[in-house]
Amino acid sequence: MSALPPYASTGQRAWYYSFRVICGLIFFFLIAPIVVIIPLSFNAQDFFTFTPEMLRLDPEGFSLKHYRNFFGDDSWQTSMWNSLKIAPMATIVSVTFGTLAAIGLSQPHVPFRRAIMAILISPMIVPLIISAAGMYFFYSRIGLQGTYMGVVLAHAALGIPFVIITVTATLVGFDRSLTRAAANMGADPVTTFFRVQMPLIMPGVISGGLFAFITSFDEVVVVLFVGSAGQRTLPWQMFTGLREQISPTILAVATLLVAISIMLLATVEMLRRRSERLRGMSPS
């Protein structure tokens, strides 16, 4: 549907434009809820809807007070720091284990490959409430419930499928003759890995890592069960906020999170294209 041919009939024309309008509406549905919270987060009032002042674009109607609330409030700040302490650690764990395993999985002859893959991807598939409840009881028993370590391990497990998927995807197009060539020229397997394989799968590793990071950074069900007050993360704080004291500060937090998402998304997109270029695929 790149362009309408000059010979198109009226009916085709009508369909062409109405189809575009339909798609436009669907895109609007996708994006509007995210966009609409951004202006609302600058509301000078404690309301969740546009005030008459805002609609008149009167500067009086806007303020940064919800952002000040967020940065000035102890519980929001603690929860942000908790998130920032948990997510990177969980990411490191899942990326380390995940990358190794993805390389193993992409070897030509792996026994039980399908079964292993199914197990490794399962944290993404099993309903979160079941994972959360299971971890809650089991981690309680081994003394990990309510500890930093417990939440990190739980989040790492949830992030692993994403690392596996992205890294194996970059390895699918990997040209094995490259490692053979390296070996031919006398490189040992370790050197080959770091000098040949690693640079090529790096984009996949990083985007897998970002996925793992956002998984942990956004996760609320598991942390509600596995964590305790000391591990109250940002999503947890938002969840209680939404249930209990729904204050517009949540909108300020949401806006900041959207900004973070945009940054992560841009990075992942960039990496994906770079990876495709490196592997000699045309950027699509």
Binding site: L100, A101, V110, I119, I130, F138, L153, A157
Partner: peptide, 26 residues
């Protein structure tokens, strides 16, 4: 095969301990 399994083993063990076992236990 051994090499592949050795690479996968740490993660498989990790998932079994932190995830599969808790779910089965519940």
């Amino acid at each position: 095969k051994m090499r592949a399994l050795l690479l996968i083993a740490p993660l498989l063990l990790f998932i079994l301990l932190t995830f599969i076992l808790p779910v089965a236990d519940m």
